[in-house]
Simulated scan of single mutants.
Amino acid sequence: MIRGNRFLLIFVSLSVALVLAILPMPAVLLPYRPLWLFLVIAFWTIEEPERVGLGVAFVFGVLMDLVVGTVLGEYALRLVVFTFLLGRFRARFNFYPGWQQTLVLAALLINDRIVAAAVHVATHGLAAPWHYWGSVIVTAVLWVPTFALLDAIRLRKR
């Protein structure tokens, strides 16, 4: 029963992240929209690496592509690269205090933005504007509260 609850919790949290990604926002704030799916994938990759890995990142990346309307496979590629890199450093990441985890996550999100910029240049021929990087800062700042919230929910379900 507990095992089924974990899968349900993972699925619900990732689904909520998808919904948060498409909620309407004022046009001024759109460049600063947090990358919720990256935060939730990061949490589950760290806490449940045997359940959430590259396959889950790929599936939810394709779903994000379909929901947001980007080039099919863009988010899937970005999430798989992000999850792979985070998974490689998961053992060290757990020992860092919150502020260092935030910096590591920011570095991974900068890498994500570079991958996304490469995809945009390859598919559209357009370079990203300067405010394109705003969501990295907002997402990194939200790491500790998101981690605390999801961890409290996960531990309460046990």
Rank of each mutant, 00 (worst) to 15 (best):
Leu149Thr: 15
Leu14Ala: 08
Thr70Leu: 01
Val62Ile: 15
Glu47Asp: 11
Leu142Lys: 09
Val59Trp: 11
Thr139Lys: 02
Gly87Val: 09
Val16Ile: 15
Leu142Tyr: 13
Phe89Glu: 08
Gly125Gln: 01
Phe60Arg: 00
Gly55Ser: 14
Gly98Thr: 11
Arg113Trp: 07
Ala128Phe: 05
Gly73Phe: 00
Gly87Gln: 07
Ala21Tyr: 08
Gly53Tyr: 06
Gly134Val: 03
Gly55Val: 10
Leu79His: 06
Glu74Asp: 14
Ile137Trp: 11
Arg78Gly: 13
Arg90Tyr: 09
Ile22Tyr: 10
Gly134Tyr: 05
Leu8Gly: 08
Leu23Thr: 13
Ala128Gly: 02
His120Val: 14
Leu18Val: 11
Leu79Ala: 10
Asp65Met: 03
Leu63Arg: 01
Ser13Gln: 03
Val136His: 09
Leu86Phe: 02
Phe84Ile: 01
Ala17Asn: 07
Val104Arg: 03
Leu85Met: 13
Lys157Arg: 13
Ser135Trp: 04
Arg6His: 11
Asn94Cys: 10
Thr70Asn: 04
Ser13Lys: 02
Leu20His: 06
Leu149Tyr: 13
Phe95Gly: 15
Thr123Phe: 08
Gly125His: 04
Ala140Leu: 10
Gly53Cys: 08
Lys157Pro: 02
Pro145Met: 09
Ala57Val: 05
Gly73Leu: 01
Leu63Tyr: 11
Leu39His: 04
Val104Leu: 11
Ala21Met: 12
Leu85Val: 05
Thr45Ser: 13
Ile46Ser: 11
Ala107Ile: 08
Val62Glu: 04
Arg90Gly: 04
Arg158Glu: 15
Leu9Met: 07
Ala91Ser: 13
Ala57Glu: 01
Phe11Gln: 07
Ile153Asn: 02
Lys157Val: 14
Gly4Ala: 10
Trp99Cys: 12
Leu77Ile: 05
Leu109Val: 05
